[in-house]
């Protein structure tokens, strides 16, 4: 579209990019402008007090929560609609921009450009109808970059706090449902993979039982391998040990550590500081809907800079 290039996400090592993410639940503002990037092989741990938006951000990564503003990119493909506020090139095509430019006659166009764009962004001046040129640009760019969400989710494994195993299916059926239903594998292939995964976690004898007969730790480990059965490029963990008996936390964290060592890209929302310290390649501290601090585990725990983080760490460590 006339040389506009919004896709700067094609770099080899980049997996997920989050740009200017805002999320409202009605009037409640949960995310207030979050941007970050998950690179291939990274283990990113997100910590923060409850209500800080960390789970919401994680759930935005596979669009279980649809962001109000902002963009999510996965492997160079756009998952959300285009957010014009993130792209000055698009804003310049809008009627509002052109009008504002015309009002400032006599001034140097290049100087005033940045000012106008900042003004439009700050005061949310873009309207629903901004002329055909603007509309066509957004349409064309979206068409060139968007990705089907169901297809994308096949590559993003997710593990939930409450396991969410399918209660009407046996353990093996839990593992094979998606690969078979989505025609990625035949039933035989999926079951062979299922047995392999169950052996790995030492639960091959549970293949034909229903989830209601399992312990919490067993359920969560099966939920993890259910996601692995899709052979994902990244795994998202949403407080995977918060609903477990203390006794069972260890077995789940152990499995997650194994995955990390194998090089799986992981994003983990958790309260397990030990796990964060040991496994993370980067830790994000979220509070009040923004990322307050972002650092390597060593620096993060030894030299916290943000006051809120210092307070948080003093309570949890």
């Amino acid at each position: 579209m006339k040389g506009i290039e919004i896709n700067d996400n094609n770099r080899q090592d980049s997996l997920i990019q989050i740009k200017g993410l805002y999320k409202y639940f009605g009037k409640l503002q949960v995310l207030k402008g979050v941007s970050t990037e998950i690179k291939k092989g990274e283990k990113v741990v997100i910590i923060g007090p409850s209500g800080s938006g960390k789970s919401t951000m994680l759930r935005c990564m596979n669009l279980l929560e649809v962001p109000t503003y902002g963009e999510i990119w996965f492997e160079g493909k756009l998952l959300t609609p285009i957010d014009p506020y993130l792209h000055p090139e698009i804003i310049r095509l809008s009627k509002t921009y052109k009008k504002m430019l015309a009002e400032n006659t006599g001034k140097n166009e290049e100087e005033i450009d940045a000012e106008i764009i900042a003004d439009i962004k700050k005061n949310d001046l873009l309207k629903k109808h901004e002329g055909a040129e603007y509309k066509d640009a957004i349409k064309a760019l979206y068409k060139a970059n968007f990705s089907n969400i169901d297809k994308t989710r096949q590559k993003i494994g997710m593990v939930f706090q409450h396991f969410n195993l399918f209660n009407n299916l046996t353990v093996m059926q839990n593992l094979t449902l998606a690969p078979v239903e989505l025609k990625l594998k035949t039933k035989e292939q999926a079951e062979a993979k299922g047995i392999e995964l169950l052996k790995r976690i030492g639960l091959e004898d549970k293949a034909n039982v229903y989830p209601s007969t399992l312990s919490g730790g067993q359920k969560q480990r099966i939920a993890i391998v259910r996601a692995l059965a899709m052979e994902p490029d990244v795994m998202l963990f949403d407080e995977p040990t918060s609903a477990l008996d203390p006794e069972m936390v260890g077995e789940v964290l152990e499995l997650m550590k194994e995955l990390a060592e194998e090089g799986m890209t992981m994003v983990v929302v958790t309260h397990e500081m030990g796990f964060a310290r040991e496994v993370a390649s980067r830790i994000l501290f979220m509070d009040d809907g923004v990322i307050k601090e972002e650092n390597s585990p060593k620096e993060f725990f030894a030299n916290p800079k943000d006051d809120r983080l210092k307070e948080f760490l003093s309570k949890v460590l």
Partner: peptide, 22 residues
């Protein structure tokens, strides 16, 4: 529960598949 629906969707199943299978 919604969790099972979310789990199905997160695996890449569409709404119809989640309805029918889960």
């Amino acid at each position: 529960d919604d969790g099972q629906i979310e789990a199905g969707r997160a695996l890449g199943l569409n709404k119809l598949q989640v309805m029918i299978k889960i």
